[in-house]
Each structure stands twice: as structure tokens, then as C-alpha cells.
Amino acid sequence: MKKILLTATAFLMLFSCQNDTTESTTQNATALTKRSCASQDVLAAQLKADPTLALRMNQIEAFTQNAMLTNRLVNGKVEIPVVVNVLYRTTAENISLTQIQSQINVLNQDFNATNSDFNKVPSLFSGVKANVGITFVLDQVIRKSTTKTSWGTTDTMKKTTYGGIAPTSPTTKLNLWVCTIGGGILGYAQFPGGASSTDGVAIDSKYVGLSGTASAPYNLGRTATHEVGHWMNLRHIWGDANCGSDLVSDTPTHNDANYGVPAYPHYSTCSGTPVEMTMNYMDYTDDNAMYMFSNGQKSRMSAIFVSGGARSGFGI
């Protein structure tokens, strides 16, 4: 397991030196075979547009590391109200309340280790598999008809001036936009530290919940689990770089993203050739191949909800 050793200088550089080259999101996604999350690309664009964002995120990172070291965590007493903003062009895109509630149910299962596949975690990782202990409740569903065929990843779905829906009380409620994103993107999230006017998670309507428009292999609601992980300050498990760091000490170093349903054990090509935690929600595997967070990820997520944390408005 890797250790996290970050100096103050490293904190300063961590978010200011992100690669600002983003992938095009204009590709045809009619035959989507690989998971694609645009959270890191969106962050790179936000960092380029707002130089002060890097400083805010460095401060959040320093606070997070300190909160984990001092155990100033919330002990699972966080309930997240969720506002679902549905932007639809077709009847199918206007997803049902049943489909929306199934997504809330999946979030509650995955973040509380009651998901039926939690017992599939290999014995190698049994000592670090986590019950995050954060719950979600559906607060409101807002629906809006649109003529747009896709919304992209520039946050237009969050802005009324572009025909979208503005977030509702983003400092105390998680806003989830359900719409056609396009470009093969399943979803993306805003990391802590970004503007409240664009805060939340966007998910393509084809990858929400367990029914209706939900399309295999992303029809088990895990896209939302992955993106909410980002919203709670988790990075991709491979650190968005070859053998990169996800800032968590108990996840193995991955050489890159994994896709599909990897055979276990899958060995990393990084130093020490560790077995990769391909079943972690922050990898890119299919929905039925991801089913755990780690204790280190739990500590990282919990830290943002304590007094003084980036999302303390949701805490106790």
C-alpha cells in the first residue's frame, strides 16, 4: 500500500499543475464500451479559467490531511439531501421517479456497505474495505423540457441563461443534473472548492439508477457512486497519471485506469507490482465490477464535512 507524503510545496503544486489539455467530447457515443468520466477534464478547464481555484483546493487538501491525522471526522452522521434536476428532450429522457429513487437507493447501499456485492471484496482488501456511513435522501425533483440534443461538459446544464437549471441551495444540498451529456461521457462532478453556482454532479440519463433508460454495462447506478466520490474529494484511483497518486494511503498504486471486468488478481506495472484494487468505485470498470471504497477514502471523504471543511454545511 502506498504512503502519502506531501509537503506544503507539494500542496501548492498539486492542483496548479494539472494538465490543461482536455479530450474532445464530440465523439459519437452510440456504442459506448469504456467508462468515461470528465471530472478531471472539467477541473483542468476550471483551473485554467480561475487561477484562485488552485489556491482554494490546496487549502482544502491541507485541511483534509490535517483532519485525517487528528481524527476530526464526522463518524457517519452526515445525511445528504439530493436535488435531482432533469433536463429532457424526449419522453425517455424525462426519467421516472422510480428510476430516480433507485439511484438514491444505490447511493445509500454503496456508501453504507449494504450493496449485495460488498461480500465479493477479495480477502487481500478485506482489512481496508469501508462502510463510509453517509446517507442520501431525495429532497426534490425539478424537471425542464429542452430542445438540446446534448449539453457537453461546460456546465451549461447548470445555467438558466443556457436553458439549464440553476442549483438549489448548493452549500447544503447535492444537486444532481440528469441530461444527455454526449461525447461518450457518462458523468462528471465538481470537486470541493469550485464555484457554488456550478457545484454538483451531472450524469447522462442513460446511466442513472436501475431501470428505465439505464443501459448496460452501466445500469447499476455506479456512475453516480463514482461521481459523488469525486464531489466528496476523491480522485481516480490511478491518480490520473501513470502510477499516479490518488492521495489515499491504503489503495494500491495503479498504472492506469481499468475497464470492463478485470480478472482477479490484476497486477500493477508500478513499483512493487501490487495487486490493483480494480473493484474500487474510483476505477473505470463496469458497474458490476466495482463494489467498494477503502478506509482511506472514507477518511478523506469524511474530512470535508467537519467544521471548517469544504462541505461543512452538510455536517453535524
Rank of each mutant, 00 (worst) to 15 (best):
A45V: 11
N258K: 11
S245E: 03
N28W: 00
N295A: 08
N75T: 07
A214G: 05
M282I: 08
G193W: 02
A49E: 08
P122F: 02
A224M: 15
N75A: 15
N255V: 05
L6W: 09
D240S: 14
S169M: 14
K206M: 10
K148L: 11
T198Y: 07
V42L: 07
E276T: 13
T171N: 12
E79W: 00
N105E: 08
E276W: 03
H254W: 04
H254L: 12
T52Q: 13
L55Y: 07
V275R: 05
H226E: 01
K2D: 10
G194I: 07
S211A: 13
P170H: 06
G244R: 10
T253P: 00
M13I: 10
Y88N: 05
K48L: 08
E227W: 12
K129E: 12
D250V: 09
N94G: 06
T30Y: 05
S24V: 06
A310M: 04
W238K: 05
T70F: 11
G272T: 07
Y88I: 07
T149P: 01
A202G: 00
A195R: 10
P167R: 03
M57E: 15
I142A: 03
E276Y: 02
V137F: 03
D41F: 00
K298Q: 08
T147S: 15
T225K: 04
M282R: 13
L6Y: 14
P167M: 08
K120R: 15
Y218I: 01
A49W: 04
F15S: 00
V83F: 02
T172D: 00
T33D: 06
S302D: 14
L6P: 07
V208L: 10
K48F: 02
V201Q: 05
T33N: 09
N105W: 01
I165R: 02
R89K: 15
A189K: 08
T285W: 00
V275S: 01
L73C: 01
L186Y: 03
G272Y: 12
W177Q: 05
G239M: 04
V141A: 02
S249M: 04
R300K: 15
S150T: 10
G127Y: 13
T22G: 11
M292D: 10
T225I: 14
H254A: 11
V141Q: 04
E276M: 15
L87Q: 02
L174H: 10
N115W: 11
Y162I: 04
M279Y: 12
K34Q: 14
L47I: 15
K129T: 13
Q297E: 15
I80A: 00
A166C: 00
K144D: 00
Y284F: 14
P51F: 07
P262F: 06
A166M: 08
N288W: 02
M292R: 06
D199Q: 11
Q59F: 12
T171S: 14
I181M: 10
L247E: 12
G212A: 14
S145I: 02
E93D: 12
P170F: 05
C243V: 11
T223H: 03
L124H: 04
L12V: 09
L247R: 12
A289C: 02
